[in-house]
Amino acid sequence: MAQAGVHDRGATADELELLARLRAGDEAAFESLVSTHYGTMLAVAQTYVRTRAVAEEVVQEAWLGVLKGLDRFEGRSSLKTWILRIVANTAKTRGVREARSVPFASLEPEGEEAAVEPGRFCAPGEAFAGHWCRYPRDWQRLPEEILLDRETLQVVVAAIRALPAAQRTVISMRDVEGCSSEEVCEALDVSEGNQRVLLHRARSRVRAALEEHFDG
């Protein structure tokens, strides 16, 4: 837990207000909490279990844990961090039970991975070694509709699905769900540096998929 508690300054004022409403039994407050965190929880759960269906069960189970612990939650971490830790622990337990656990080591970035195929740069020894052979395309010139159309989104969905679990989780938490790097580090118990490597590899692979789609 090297990173835990380093950045987390505790529950925010908004969270404390929400907490008071939850404890008073306010259903709307609970619904808003659920819709705020559901997607992120699903992303965390899918790090440790294989299928979306099992991940959904894990999220349900985690919410029961959240409700059980709500009266004892003291606000020393943010409510979000606390919830994400509950879902991570629930998913790990479930993963172990199913003998489908993602070994902890695989949350660490593995091996080397080039963001862009080395063949796209001038070879070592050439006059412009390490420089683009041919510049990447200027996407600013693509018609806006192409960037926004369904097919493009499907390319992104497929590219994210094809990522190794740890990369998929980090890009989903950061770029789909809008979590901060601190929140990712605390939920997954990875260092800032490793979080950035995983994010870099994930974004690079999705970019490459988009490039292939646009360039045909």
Binding site: G39, L153, I171, D175, R203, V206
Partner: peptide, 21 residues
């Protein structure tokens, strides 16, 4: 262009956000 492609990638991934449960 490459840095812009990465920014565009991040923005496009962000469009997958969906609050629906």
């Amino acid at each position: 262009s490459y840095v812009d492609q990465m920014r565009t990638t991040v923005r496009t991934v962000g469009r997958l956000h969906d609050d629906a449960v």
